[in-house]
Amino acid sequence: MSGREEIVGELMKLLEGFNVKKVPLAPDTDIPAQLELDSVQVMDFIMQVEDTFDINIPQHEVAEIRTLNDLADVVMKRKGA
């Protein structure tokens, strides 16, 4: 699993668990703002992403992530893809 589309698809699946309001998800969805996630929920989501892709994402990189595309960039960089 290294293609961007596959990664975005996997991230969308993980994000469904946090998408209480069933906001339609797209690669440019602003995750914390549009899903109204608080800091703890963001942390929980990121920990799931880390364990799914077997990577560590340092907190300062999390702070820069707004969209699924941003997150996919980080996942690809961290996986060395």
């Binding site: 942390m43 990121i46 920990m47 880390e50 364990d51 077997d54 990577i55 560590n56 994402i57 340092p58 907190q59 300062h60």
Partner: peptide, 26 residues
């Protein structure tokens, strides 16, 4: 931790195995 300037990695609450996984990747 933020003030230190070090990289911060979170692990699941009270989960030594989860910490070990993250240390293995580190």
């Amino acid at each position: 931790a933020t003030l230190s300037g070090a990289e911060i990695i979170w692990f699941r609450h009270n989960d030594p195995d989860n910490l070990a996984r993250r240390l293995r990747r580190h």
